[in-house]
Each structure stands twice: as C-alpha cells, then as structure tokens.
C-alpha cells in the first residue's frame, strides 16, 4: 500500500453569504497516493475549485477531515506570472515567499528551468513569451519549492487548442519525470483520460464523488499516444454518461 498524500474523509463545506448559505460539498471522500496522477471531472459550478482550495488548506471544511502529507504547489488556469519580474525572478517567487531562497534551492529551480527549455528566456519578461512557454514557466515556478503534491486547476483551459495539446504533453512529461503526485481539476473529459491514472467524477453541487475509475492504457502515460489508443473513446463515452447522468 502506497503512502497517501491527500485524504479527504466525509468533507462538507458550506459557503455563507448575506443572501444565505450554499452547500458546496457534502460527504466528499477520496484519496491520492504517492506518485499518482488523479483527475477530477465534474459539471461546471460543482465546486471543483473549492476542492482544490480545501486541499491547499486555503479553506477549512465545515465538517469532516482533510489530511495532507508534505507541501503542495498550486497551478492556476492562467500562468499568473508577474509582469514586472523576469522569468527567472518569477520562478524564484515561491522560494522568496517561503524564505527558502538559498543558493542551493535557486540553483535547483534554475536547473529545472534550463532542463525544460526555458534557459534562453530566464532574463525575458513574461510579455515576451508565447502562451505555451508562459504556462511552462508557471509549472517550473510551481516546482521550484519541490512540492510533494501538485494541485492543478484547469491549467490548460486558457490556451488555444493547438498549444493546449502541446503544453499538456509537456506538463505530463515534466510531472512524470520529476515523479510528482498530482491532483488535476478539469471540465475536459478527454484531457482527464489522456493524463490521469485515476479519474474521479463529481456530482453537481453539493460536490461528492459519484464514480471512480482506474485508467490502464497498458502502462502508456503519454497523453498524445493515449488519445490514439482504442480504449480512449470507450472511456470518453462512460465518463460522458456519468457526468450527464
């Protein structure tokens, strides 16, 4: 049994506003084990982002418990690079925030950037990079502090289709080769199938896991290859039905 990096047990969350209260999650239970890539899909407005905020510890559950082992890195829809910082300074940002800006950590983050093709852009400003390169820089920034768990909030949805396929390929490659555990939130069924080891399907609000599937493409991890494999459309059909059922 592998170590569980993230464990949600019977989590409920209620949002309070002046107009009333909304149940965002109820009886939400799942786990993510070490080295696993888990994708969560759900109908729009079902509280997917809430789930990530809970996992990151930015929100406290109304009831139930959330256990997380180790640190986490958050990646959002847009790259959210700071325009007044160079790519290099952007990548060092989490090190500064966590007061870990040692020579060793800086070199490690820098080496990651160079390894994944950002070496020539370290002194550039974000506005000088393409959307795909910016999202790649955002991933390197997320990896700078060597987090144990990556939380990915639809990180490809702001890119055009062509770039999106390429960046998905890139990011999957980087996450797999760095041996990271990842929790991906998406509304894109095919993206979930192409990336994940396991897919969780959420119900409409209040969010709860209705179905869970372990995807096995004969050990194939590359998103592009998976898209070409025969099992792909079968999974799409199943998940599509569950999502709309």
């Amino acid at each position: 049994m592998k170590k569980e990096m993230l464990l949600f047990s019977d989590v409920s969350l209620i949002y309070h506003t002046a107009r009333g209260e909304t149940k965002a999650a109820e009886g939400l239970s799942f786990s993510v084990s070490e080295g696993e890539f888990v994708a969560v899909i759900g109908p729009s407005g079902c509280g997917k982002t809430t789930l990530l905020s809970l996992a990151a510890g930015l929100l406290k559950p109304s009831s139930g418990s959330i256990e997380r082992h180790g640190s986490c890195g958050y990646m959002l829809q847009k790259d959210e690079l700071f325009r007044w910082r160079t790519i290099e300074k952007n990548i060092y940002l989490p090190l500064e925030i966590k007061h870990q800006k040692t020579e060793e950590n800086r070199l490690r983050a820098r080496a990651l950037a160079v390894k994944y093709g950002l070496g020539d852009f370290l002194q550039s400003y974000p506005s000088q990079l393409s959307g795909g390169m910016r999202q790649r820089a955002a991933l390197i920034r997320t990896l700078a502090t060597d987090p144990d768990l990556l939380l990915l909030d639809e990180p490809f949805s702001a890119l055009d289709y062509q770039t999106r396929l390429n960046v998905t390929e890139d990011v999957a490659e980087i996450i797999r080769s760095e041996g990271k555990t990842a929790l991906l939130i998406t509304h894109d069924i095919s993206e979930a199938i192409s990336l994940a080891d396991r897919v969780l399907v959420l119900s409409p609000r209040p969010a709860r896991v209705t179905h869970e599937h372990t995807l096995d493409f004969g050990g194939e991890k590359k998103p592009m290859r998976r898209r070409e494999m025969s099992g792909f459309s079968g999974w799409f059909e199943i998940l599509w039905k569950e999502l709309n059922g």
């Binding site: 959002l76 959210e80 966590k98």
Partner: peptide, 27 residues
C-alpha cells in the same frame, strides 16, 4: 489587485505583508 494572483501567493503561504510587498505595491 488580481484575485488569482492573491490566491497563488496565499497557496504559497504568503503573509499579508508579503502580499503587500511582492504583489500589491508592484502591481
């Protein structure tokens, strides 16, 4: 100040002072 950038910094564990100096003032 961009809400998503605030979320990003908070997910890194930023204090309010860090939010101010790293994000709010420069942006």
């Amino acid at each position: 100040t961009d809400k998503n950038k605030i979320l990003l910094l908070r997910s890194m564990g930023a204090s309010k002072l860090q939010l101010l100096t790293k994000l709010v003032i420069p942006s």
